[in-house]
């Protein structure tokens, strides 16, 4: 598949990326790991006028833990999350979820910021960040603002980011309570048919591929908070979801799966 002609500029810092977006307008697109954007361009489903390549923006890369908060640069790769010793200690759910994304080649290139900004309901990392109650930092021409993960995903492949904003940092609370990630797929490298992330013994529960956005399973969280056991809490996992139909699963099967996987995840997380 051959993409349409596209302009290219390099932005080697967050500031340069914001400036480049300002300069090249609405049709410009940030390029992080390219693992979602490039396939869309090759199918000509995306036709940006200019690619703003952040690949060498070192200030957007890295993981740090400060007190109760983990801060991760948007350009940090899935592979870096997967192999980070700090993250394994401070937020093992995220490190584990990162290890479940695609295959090694995808994990080396793909980035946390790209995965969040792309806002694919079938992606793994957005669900983890939702379950963990993360906060996203968006930087635009007027400065930075914080967006709660639960407000970030606004529609299918749509986020609260404005077209002139760069997602720069993700803040997460240190989270070492019971956690689990159940990813159900047919081949190791595939997206989840359904996925369920559980943080802090069920205080945070989120669902993958059960609607047009990554979803927080509020009913399950409430049931757990109210003292329900895993099985009872999982029974409401499909409530309010509108799961898609594709080759692998129709909506009814996804609803069945999400209940099964939620129960398994809650049990694994000690709920």
């Amino acid at each position: 598949m051959i993409p349409a002609a596209v302009g290219y500029v390099r932005a080697d810092s967050a500031e340069a990326a914001v400036a480049a977006l300002g300069e090249h307008g609405d049709e410009a697109k940030l390029l992080a790991g390219g693992q979602s954007l490039i396939p869309l361009m090759r199918l000509r489903l995306a036709r940006p006028s200019v690619l703003v390549d952040m690949g060498r923006a070192e200030d957007l890369r890295g993981i740090s833990v400060d007190g109760d908060t983990v801060s991760i640069g948007a350009l940090t790769s899935h592979s870096a999350l997967e192999h980070s010793v700090e993250l394994a200690a401070a937020c093992p759910l995220l490190a584990h979820v990162a290890s479940q994304v695609g295959d090694p080649a995808v994990r080396h290139r793909g980035t946390l910021g790209g995965s969040l900004a792309h806002a694919d309901p079938a992606s793994d990392l957005p669900a983890a960040v939702l379950a963990l109650g993360g906060t996203l930092v968006a930087t635009g021409p007027g400065g930075s603002r914080e967006i709660a993960a639960s407000d970030f995903f606004t529609g299918f492949l749509e986020s609260a980011l404005a077209s002139d904003e760069v997602l720069t940092t993700v803040h997460l609370p240190v989270s070492t309570g019971g956690w689990a990630y159940q990813k159900f797929n047919r081949r190791a490298q595939d997206w989840a048919i359904v996925g369920v992330a559980v943080a802090e013994g069920g205080a945070g529960v989120s669902l993958v591929n059960m609607g047009s956005t990554p979803l927080r399973a509020a009913a399950v969280e409430a049931a757990v908070a109210g003292g329900a056991g895993a099985s009872d809490a999982a029974a409401v996992a499909a409530d309010g979801t509108e799961p898609p139909t594709d080759n692998n699963a129709d909506g009814a099967y996804r609803e069945h799966l999400v209940r099964v996987l939620t129960e398994r995840a809650l049990v694994a997380a000690g709920a």
Partner: peptide, 23 residues
């Protein structure tokens, strides 16, 4: 996979499940 209009719904290797070494 084809739909009732004869459109292939498994025209790439994300949708057409060729096993990999992991399988």
């Amino acid at each position: 996979v084809y739909d009732e209009d004869g459109q292939c719904r498994s025209a790439n290797l994300a949708d057409y499940l060729v096993p990999s070494a992991a399988e």
